[in-house]
Amino acid sequence: MLALKNISYKYEGTTRTIFKDVNLEFSPGKVYTIVGKSGAGKSTLLALLSGLDVATGGEIVYNGENLAKINRNHYRARQMGMVFQSLNLIPTATALDNIVLSMNISGVGGNKTRALELLKTMGISPEKSRRKILKLSGGEQQRIAIARAIAHNPPLIVADEPTGNLDKETEGKVLKIFENIAHEQGKCVIIVTHSRRVTTIADEIWHVEKGIFRRFDGNVNAPQTQKRRRK
């Protein structure tokens, strides 16, 4: 579904290499978690996967097409849902408007009833759904950001620390939702996290350090170096 082929990345104007020859594959119906220290390149990976940034070498292939050559606005709007670390909700709009706007941008149409149902699933009451984002708690905002990412039913969900502001109970509910989306609806879920609990729902766990991805193969204490493709 989504594959990184010999991906390299350097920040513009610097010589510092973030990634070099990274090869990864993400398939539908699975939950992937990416773990690693701050500054290891996790968020950069998500930026590349979401088409917000472009690799300096190699290619990212989505359903057989090079991401650099397709309409990335269209890709972001329709093919993927993204939960940003800083949430990136529109603060002056209501929770409901944030969801409906996302649905409209994706082309599925802003269905208020579906948006309210989704918010309710996330534990946001109809009354709170009509409040402006600024008047909601951090946890509520995080749940709204998750609802926005899945509202238009995209085949790919990319989430950056999606449970960072949630209590244990809500975190459990949200993780269940991610798990269901992958395992029951056959979507691909990629989560960047520091939370060990989040990794419990993962089908594959990848650890990134100094631009090197290593896979945990069922045992978080035994990292496995990624397979590198040779040209």
Binding site: S50, L52, R72, N73, H74, Y75, R76, A77, R78, M82, F84, N88, L89, I90, T92, L101, S102, I105, S106
Partner: peptide
């Protein structure tokens, strides 16, 4: 910021 969010969501 609002423009950034909209663009990140895929709005042309």
């Amino acid at each position: 910021y609002e423009v950034g969010v909209l663009r990140a969501m895929g709005l042309e």
